[in-house]
């Protein structure tokens, strides 16, 4: 995946079955963000792989004050890339869904 400066990792072991997974997001390289970033730390959240949209979660992070509106796309893309990788791994390992 492209290096967006925003890192998203699994925050739990993926058993390949759960539709809702725990993720952890943090800024690795603030220079890649357009807006000024205040260092808040890592943000842990849950994400439903079947129902949720990464860009909506990114918007909620903006509204919660973690990022500025100008960076909503980069945050959304970072989450989307990680979610795509998780889904791809599940298909590859033959997990249900």
């Amino acid at each position: 995946a492209e290096d967006t400066g925003v890192r998203v990792e699994l925050n739990e072991e993926d058993d390949g079955k759960k539709s809702t997974i725990a993720l952890k997001l943090w800024v690795e390289d603030p220079k890649k963000l357009k807006g000024k970033y205040k260092d808040t730390g890592a943000i842990e959240f849950t994400f439903n792989l079947e129902k949720e949209v990464p860009e909506v979660v990114a918007q909620e992070m903006v509204e919660s004050g973690f990022f500025l509106e100008c960076d909503v796309k980069i945050v959304g893309k970072s989450i989307r890339d990680r979610v795509a990788l998780i889904k791809w791994r599940r298909v590859r390992t033959g997990s249900p869904n």
């Binding site: 730390g41 959240f45 909620e60 509204e63």
Partner: peptide, 27 residues
């Protein structure tokens, strides 16, 4: 370690925790 919690109006819970050790690029 210090953690805090932010709940968005849509109901999603964000837990803020320290960034994992050694996971920041040089600034």
């Amino acid at each position: 370690s210090a953690t805090s919690q932010v709940v968005h109006s849509a109901g999603r819970r964000f837990i803020v925790s320290p960034v994992p050790e050694g996971r920041l690029k040089d600034q």
